[in-house]
């Protein structure tokens, strides 16, 4: 079954989006990308000294010919996020922006008000906004009202590895926005979390820490790629309904000794 994945008019090769931060080394990052073969790689910006040490990282990413998704990590208000997005667009030559406006230090929970403010302005400036958001239904509706075609609710707080904290809310988002691209962003820990998100009908998952901080990042990256594939296949193939009783899988008609014990 052909399963073409388009986002923002561009066809992507995978429904796994991989972050590029926090790997033990650039070598492990490279191997992890090779193992995951992600559809998008997230990148960021940092203050640059004239000594310029970031070039090696960027050379590695460019070598993969995989589209990048710049983020606005570390921004705590709409203005910072908008300026960061504009700088990212110039450097990375893409209209895509993973919009993060953080509202709480402890949970890194996004600030919905700052997110809406920044989203509106960035959409007006021609950006393709990937909003990092909570799983709040009304916030999702407001983002869609502004013109967002992509929503990225968290599974759990960034780096927590908890998986999908609120299945009910995530199911509601999928049911209420059947035509929007929904991506689980953040909080995943193991490939089964990614599979679960895909089984719910999410279009993709975005993760970083679960791979970068694993004991063997490339091995975990490959595991996540398989998890995403498995979950997507489950969603497309139509899972059986859960029930409380057993149903024999082997046909019993004409089996030897069938019901003999009851005589």
């Amino acid at each position: 079954m052909e399963d073409i994945f388009k986002i923002g008019g561009e066809q992507l090769s995978s429904r796994l989006f991989l972050g590029s931060a926090s790997y033990p080394s650039l070598s492990e990052l490279r191997k992890s990308i090779e193992a995951a073969q992600p559809g998008l790689i997230t990148v960021s910006l940092r203050r640059e000294s004239s000594a310029g040490k970031g070039q090696e990282f960027w050379d590695i990413i460019k070598g993969f010919d995989i589209p990048v998704l710049p983020n606005t990590a570390g921004c705590y208000n709409a203005r910072e996020a908008i300026t960061t997005a504009e700088m990212a667009r110039e450097i990375f030559e893409t209209n895509r922006i993973k919009l993060e406006v953080i509202g709480d230090d402890y949970t890194l929970q996004p600030d919905p008000y700052g997110l809406l403010e920044a989203t509106e302005e960035l959409l007006n400036k021609g950006f393709e906004v990937y909003p990092y958001m909570t799983d709040d239904l009304v916030l999702a509706q407001r983002l869609v009202d502004l013109g967002c075609d992509i929503l990225m609710p968290w599974g759990a707080p960034i780096g927590s590895g908890r998986g999908l904290n609120n299945i009910y809310a995530l199911k509601q988002l999928r049911a209420r926005f059947p035509d929007k691209t929904l991506v689980i962003d953040a909080g995943l820990g193991v490939p089964s979390h990614a599979a679960q998100a895909m089984e719910l009908g999410y279009d993709a998952v975005l993760l970083n820490t679960a791979v970068a901080k694993a004991g063997d990042p490339p091995l975990m990256a490959g595991g996540f790629a398989k998890g995403v594939e498995a979950g997507r296949a489950a969603y497309l193939s139509g899972a059986i309904a859960r029930q409380e009783h057993a149903t024999p899988s082997t046909p019993l008609l004409d089996k030897p000794f069938w019901h003999q014990a009851q005589k």
Partner: peptide, 10 residues
Amino acid sequence: VEIVAPMQGG
């Protein structure tokens, strides 16, 4: 003045 360059990001 802020001067920024590409870096790793999640």
